[in-house]
Amino acid sequence: SASLEDVKTAVLGLLVILQTKLYTLPASHATRVYEMLVSHIQLHYKHSYTLPIASSIRLQAFDFLLLLRADSLHRLGLPNKDGVVRFSPYCVCDYMEPERGSEKKTSGPLSPPTGPPGPAPAGPAVRLGSVPYSLLFRVLLQCLKQESDWKVLKLVLGRLPESLRYKVLIFTSPCSVDQLCSALCSMLSGPKTLERLRGAPEGF
């Protein structure tokens, strides 16, 4: 439990870093931090981490990651405290083949985003970082199938509809809506759902 406290501190630090690096160059920093966060949550489900502190780590990670939004130009952003989304000039939600690297070039400044813009690109060529939603999407499927803490599952179920409104997140990387529907149906009809959940409301 003591070591998990250190892990929790590290994860919180990564969330803060991602919130900053999403809007700064090099964009590969945001890509790497995002991948680290998603990989860490995957390990929770792989090794069945069920301690309360592990659940709190997942809760905080999902609470942040499910706020990711994308505009029509595929640029990622996060809402501010007033709910207004600021889109990044440097990070996009497109999935890119590994051989192309985590970044790609664009020939010049991008068109203005639909929300308040981030800082304008400084040079004639900007390297865009790929932060594909499919990585998070796979972890969300694991959550629906394996999550043991009701608070975490409730958060994910509550945030998913709003995330799905931003269709560009889903359609720019390999996210299977069929698998999502299947996971939701299995969660509702499967007898093991109630068996594994802690803290579920009576009558769920």
Score class of each variant (00 low, 15 high):
109 P>W: 14
22 L>G: 02
52 P>L: 02
102 S>L: 13
72 S>F: 10
55 S>M: 07
203 G>D: 10
136 L>D: 01
192 K>N: 15
79 P>V: 09
24 T>Q: 15
15 L>W: 05
160 L>E: 02
89 P>T: 12
139 V>R: 01
108 G>Q: 13
108 G>M: 14
179 Q>T: 12
70 A>F: 03
102 S>I: 14
17 I>M: 09
151 K>P: 14
202 E>P: 12
80 N>E: 07
35 E>S: 13
29 H>N: 08
58 R>S: 00
185 C>E: 03
149 D>F: 01
77 G>W: 03
145 K>H: 15
122 A>T: 15
91 C>N: 06
5 E>T: 07
43 L>I: 14
85 V>K: 04
133 Y>G: 04
103 E>G: 11
168 V>A: 07
163 S>A: 13
52 P>D: 09
94 D>N: 07
175 C>T: 05
79 P>A: 10
54 A>I: 02
165 R>Y: 06
201 P>R: 08
115 G>A: 13
141 L>W: 03
187 M>N: 01
16 V>E: 15
111 S>P: 11
106 T>W: 15
187 M>K: 01
29 H>Y: 06
173 S>L: 02
142 Q>V: 08
117 P>S: 05
101 G>T: 14
147 E>V: 00
147 E>L: 00
166 Y>L: 06
111 S>G: 14
191 P>T: 13
105 K>G: 12
40 H>P: 00
90 Y>D: 04
72 S>V: 10
155 L>Q: 14
102 S>V: 13
109 P>Y: 12
74 H>P: 02
181 C>R: 01
190 G>A: 11
3 S>A: 11
170 I>H: 08
147 E>C: 00
18 L>K: 01
178 D>Y: 03
6 D>E: 05
199 G>Q: 09
101 G>D: 15
72 S>R: 15
169 L>A: 06
42 Q>N: 14
47 H>D: 13
80 N>F: 08
199 G>F: 10
97 E>R: 09
188 L>F: 07
23 Y>M: 06
195 E>H: 09
40 H>N: 04
101 G>L: 12
20 T>N: 10
138 R>P: 08
9 T>P: 02
97 E>L: 13
99 E>V: 14
185 C>M: 08
25 L>P: 15
30 A>I: 04
72 S>Y: 13
131 V>G: 04
128 L>D: 13
158 G>Y: 12
31 T>I: 13
68 L>C: 04
46 K>H: 12
4 L>P: 01
101 G>I: 13
104 K>C: 11
6 D>N: 01
84 V>G: 12
137 F>Y: 07
3 S>L: 08
4 L>V: 11
165 R>T: 08
114 T>I: 15
186 S>E: 12
97 E>N: 10
7 V>I: 08
34 Y>S: 02
46 K>T: 14
96 M>Y: 14
7 V>E: 00
79 P>S: 08
112 P>E: 11
138 R>Y: 08
58 R>D: 00
202 E>N: 13
28 S>E: 15
57 I>H: 00
150 W>S: 01
83 G>M: 06
73 L>Y: 12
148 S>R: 14
32 R>P: 01
107 S>R: 12
187 M>Y: 04
145 K>G: 11
112 P>D: 15
19 Q>T: 07
54 A>D: 01
150 W>Y: 07
39 S>W: 11
42 Q>C: 13
92 V>E: 04
13 G>N: 01
32 R>E: 04
27 A>N: 07
43 L>K: 12
17 I>H: 02
135 L>D: 13
167 K>Y: 04
91 C>P: 02
161 P>D: 05
77 G>E: 03
